[in-house]
């Protein structure tokens, strides 16, 4: 029923996953001593930057972004500005949530904020790409009958996977194993990343297997 969309989605997700892989591998060629644990912040920035760039490009090319009502340059600029603002606000939101969850408040604030940036680029950015800077629509999407297209369902799945991954990633921190990946925020960001990749794989698969049951209200 949704074959075309599912195929597009699968290829999009493959591109994003490949870009994540490249963002992990390529810096190792250029930067000496690059590793996911050792220079974790660098990895975080490279991955979030790549995911941001690739998602924006792919979703723009696919034309999933909701059509703008007006075509004036000023309106487009204001949309862009609002998107950037939302991006930044979402970073702050994630930062405060992570701090409330028990992350250190002052020391390693940079690490916490980097994690927030990663989470934003994995979740909020997708919302921005699919739904535009419209918080009402974001809230609407995350309800049982809120999805209005295949892409909305896909958004639900990936965002949930990412957030749950980051949440589960916090579990090993108190353990006394003294592993390098237990250092804050390595396990959380790895968890978020793994969750995100799982979501990328799972959402087309889930939609494919449930394509008969999926019905969407028209917009």
């Amino acid at each position: 029923m949704w074959d075309h969309e599912i195929r597009a989605m699968a290829s999009t997700h493959a591109i994003i996953a490949a870009s994540v892989f490249m963002a992990t591998v390529l810096p190792a060629v250029f930067v000496r001593g690059f590793s996911v644990y050792g220079t974790h912040l660098l990895w975080l920035y490279s991955v979030s930057g790549t995911v941001t760039a690739v998602s924006v490009a792919v979703f723009w090319l696919l034309g999933i972004t909701p059509p703008t009502k007006k075509h004036t340059l000023g309106y487009k600029l204001s949309r862009l500005f609002r998107s950037c603002l939302y991006f930044f606000l979402s970073c702050l939101f994630f930062h405060s949530v992570v701090v409330l969850y028990g992350a250190p408040l002052i020391e390693s604030a940079l690490e916490t904020f980097s994690l927030a940036v990663l989470l934003t680029s994995l979740t909020t950015l997708r919302c921005l790409c699919v739904l535009g800077p419209n918080v009402q629509a974001w809230i609407r999407v995350f309800s049982r009958h809120g999805a209005m297209s295949v892409w909305d369902t896909c958004l639900q799945i990936t965002v949930a996977c990412t957030v749950v991954g980051a949440w589960v990633g916090a579990f090993p921190i108190p353990l006394d194993w003294d592993r390098p990946w237990q250092v804050w925020p390595v396990s959380c960001s790895l968890g978020a990343m793994i969750g995100f990749l799982t979501g990328l794989v799972a959402s087309p698969a889930w939609i494919h297997y449930h394509r008969k049951q999926l019905t969407y209200k028209c917009k």
Binding site: Y101, G102, I139, F142, R144, G146, A170
Partner: peptide, 26 residues
């Protein structure tokens, strides 16, 4: 102490998210 607070916090966030999922929050 921190583990319990973490779990409490997760549940506290779960309530509005769950209500929103059921479309009851708005």
């Amino acid at each position: 102490g921190r583990v319990v607070t973490f779990l409490m916090f997760s549940l506290a966030l779960y309530i509005p998210i769950h209500l929103n999922w059921d479309g009851l929050l708005l």
